[in-house]
Amino acid sequence: MTEPLLQVEHLTVTYETRQGPVRAVDDVSFTVYRGEVLGLVGESGCGKSTLGMALLRMVRPPGRISSGRMIFQGRDLMQLSEGEMRKLRGRHISMVFQDPMTSLNPLQRIGDHIVETIRTHEPQVSKKEAWERAAQLIQRLGISPDRLKDYPHQLSGGMRQRIMIGIGLALNADLIIADEPTTSLDVIVEAQFLDLLRELRDEFNLTMILITHNIGVVAELADRVAVMYAGRMAEIGPVHDVFHRTLHPYTRGLLASVPSIRLEDGLELETLSGAPPSLLDPPPGCRFHPRCPQAKPVCAQRVPAWQEIHPGHGTACWLYAEEEA
């Protein structure tokens, strides 16, 4: 649990737009340890999905990774050639997308999706062998193997999402990035899917980055949580610490806006006032200061530095820093 699998350092993703450059991910650093589930939360548009794509080096133009390092199993992903990177995708880092209805090729059979992935990365495997592996796999995921011959439109959303996970498992990927995997599922299917994920995590010792805006999902599944706001990292720590010894005012606001976690404490359900800032023209200093109930004058002037307050639990906030003259 302490061996780092992926270390992201000062990662910045810039989009060149007509109005000027936009930093969708701005100077973000974090570490993913082998065998853990890291929840990445934030409001929509905070850059968490872009971050997910950046980890695969798949940010589409006009966006690009403008600086930073991503050390994965000791290698900096930024230094790899496009060909090496391609071999890594699917085999070592696998991605599960938000909408299972659209993330499978409508003209390709389910089985062919898995077989194609296996044979892309392991060309020595015969078609028949790959098909058998696919059959075993989806049986484990609770789907009958004869569904392999079906087209995606013949499967339910939950099934498809399980297939997407299955494609990641097919090659024993070291890291699975799941981008809002349950958002488009209905509540019961979501619960089943989360159960499955938990089982798989224990069974396969999965390492996963779970990108979501749903704190509840994080609470259920994640070991640690990273909170993003307007392209920057606000707070990272073990789930229990972040929920109960919350450091950043934004995290506090986010937690307060979720009914199931805090209402039992007798607090009122709050919503954050104001809207997230435009990344095109972000506020100076700490980007949260215009909405922050505890903002100080310095917050509007300078960007707070990252600080580890408790072991493994850090934040970027002026509340915990000495103001320098």
């Binding site: 109005q19 023209d281 506020p283 100076p284 300078r302 960007v303």
Partner: peptide, 9 residues
């Protein structure tokens, strides 16, 4: 980044 960046005019 302490100053508001000007948009292209």
């Amino acid at each position: 980044m302490t100053k508001t960046r000007k948009l292209r005019e």
